[in-house]
């Protein structure tokens, strides 16, 4: 193929890829603005009333708060567990470290439906935990692999002799960790938090199993809403959530070069 042909082919592939990635996003933005009582694309007339309605639906507000809470505190707990785990896996030549790495990654590899069912059958029911607690545990477990992975990669270049140097200057092992290790993996920890937050917030299959009466995460609530009401407000809400995720990733990229860690 000549150069022009190859360039054209590249542009076509790039165009298709972008269409595929951005197309659905444009569709929901427009569908949410359709001046109809039902979900329609292409939109028939344009209005912002569905975008406004989103904020008036009581269950959306409750489930949004729940999803926010799960995403923030579940990810924080995953980091509290994951940062020391990543540190131990990197720093010490532990027997079976490879196995631990594989197990930690399991929730990424195993389909969410299976994780949800397993948690329901073997944790939630036997232990009789509340729905909120069950969701909290599940979201923490789902985010943990990302926390360990992302923090691990930022710890990889951190040499052990820096901590030894800190100890010889008078630090305890713990001080060496807080004064030398943590400041140098700050970017990785923030990246892990954002990735975990977005993962948790958008999580569907596991939450589907664990949600209970009156306690639903936002994505599950949207599914339930759509089963009864088919107006464009769900599309409007989806568009708003997509903008939120986009804004978070954009700010993160600007502040700390997020893409270096993921």
């Amino acid at each position: 193929m000549n150069t022009i042909g190859r360039t054209t082919a590249n542009w076509i592939i790039l165009g298709l890829t972008l269409t595929f990635l951005i197309g659905p996003f444009l569709i929901i933005i427009l569908a949410g603005a359709s001046d109809t009582e039902f979900l329609a694309f292409p939109p028939q007339g344009l209005t912002l009333r569905w975008y406004a309605k989103v904020f008036t639906v009581e269950s959306f507000r409750a489930s949004f708060m729940l999803s926010m809470g799960l995403a923030i505190f579940g990810t924080l707990l995953a980091l509290v567990l994951g940062v020391p785990a990543a540190y131990a896996l990197n720093r010490y030549d532990l027997p079976g470290a490879e196995t631990v790495r594989t197990i930690v990654a399991a929730p990424i590899i195993v389909p969410g439906i299976i994780v949800g069912l397993a948690l329901l059958r073997y944790v939630v029911v036997p232990l009789d935990v509340t729905v909120t607690m069950a969701l909290f545990m599940a979201h923490t477990a789902l985010v943990l692999p990302y926390a360990v992975r992302v923090v691990s990669s930022s710890m990889h270049n951190l040499r052990g002799d820096m901590e030894e140097a800190a100890v010889l200057l008078g630090c305890s092992r713990f001080q060496a960790f807080t004064k030398v290790v943590l400041p140098n993996i700050r970017g990785g920890v923030l990246a892990a938090f954002i990735l975990g937050f977005v993962t948790s917030f958008n999580q569907v299959p596991v939450s589907l199993f664990l949600s209970g009466p009156g306690v639903r995460t936002l994505p599950i609530d949207m599914l339930a809403y759509m089963e009864i009401t088919f107006d464009p407000s769900v599309a409007a809400l989806s568009a708003l959530l997509a903008f939120m995720s986009l804004a978070i990733v954009f700010v993160a990229e600007r502040l700390l070069g997020f893409s270096r860690y993921v």
């Binding site: 820096m162 140097a165 010889l168 140098n184």
Partner: peptide
Amino acid sequence: PANKRGIGLVFQSYALFPH
């Protein structure tokens, strides 16, 4: 323990604190 021994060590890699 090392942090109470009052000994200095200049590492081969220098082990400076990059932050």
